[in-house]
Amino acid sequence: MKNSILPWHIGGILLAASFLLAVMIVKPIGVSTQFVIADAAMWDLVQPDIITEDSTSKSGYASPNAYLNKSGGKYAKNAANPLNYSFIFVIAMMFGAFLSSVTKGDKPTREQKHMPEIWRERFGDSRAKRYIVTFIAGFAVLFGARLAGGCTSGHMMSGMMQTALSGYLFAAGMFATSIPLAIFIFKKNK
């Protein structure tokens, strides 16, 4: 069955509504920080002294790790209490995507579940190859996002919506590598 994707202008309105609704009711949308929160929560399970309660810190939590301890232990606090707005938001986002995919949204076929068509045409149908490469790509994406302090949703969409300089700089950096690279690696060989 053909996937039903909205016409671009309707899609744009829907996406605009979600970003606007978020800033109107709570705060701008962001996703990539929650990878750090998930990491830190797991890290704390293995090594319980990585997040400690600390009444002298602004958030009430502290960490010997400089990143988790930054901004008054903000990340340490959220990792100690994963049932917070931003973390639940990301879980709900996944649920929303699932809900859409089972109600005539974009749903991958059996083959697309492992890799997109364009990858198969260019690099063959080895699943292991695609999985290893996407793992490495995911590593780069989140490392880059944390260095940048946000990702496509936080910096580019939410940031540019608010006319933030950082959003423009992020988009410039991202497209400067992604466009030439995508053109180069996914060149059609016909």
Binding site: K27, P28, V31, S32, F35, V90, M93, P116, W119, V133, T134, I136, A137, G138, F139, A140, V141, L142, F143, G144, A145, R146, L147, A148, G149, G150, C151, T152, S153, G154, H155, S158, G159, Q162, A164, L165, S166, G167, L169, F170, A171, A172, G173, M174, F175, A176, T177, S178, I179, L181, A182, I185
Partner: peptide, 28 residues
């Protein structure tokens, strides 16, 4: 909520862009 602009925003965006182009996925 305006995020801070610093050199790493551009560098991080560029690193993210590499993985984005290869995989077709961003964090969200």
């Amino acid at each position: 909520s305006i995020k801070t602009a610093y050199c790493g925003v551009i560098a991080g965006g560029a690193i993210l862009g590499i993985g984005f182009a290869i995989s077709g996925y961003c964090p969200g």
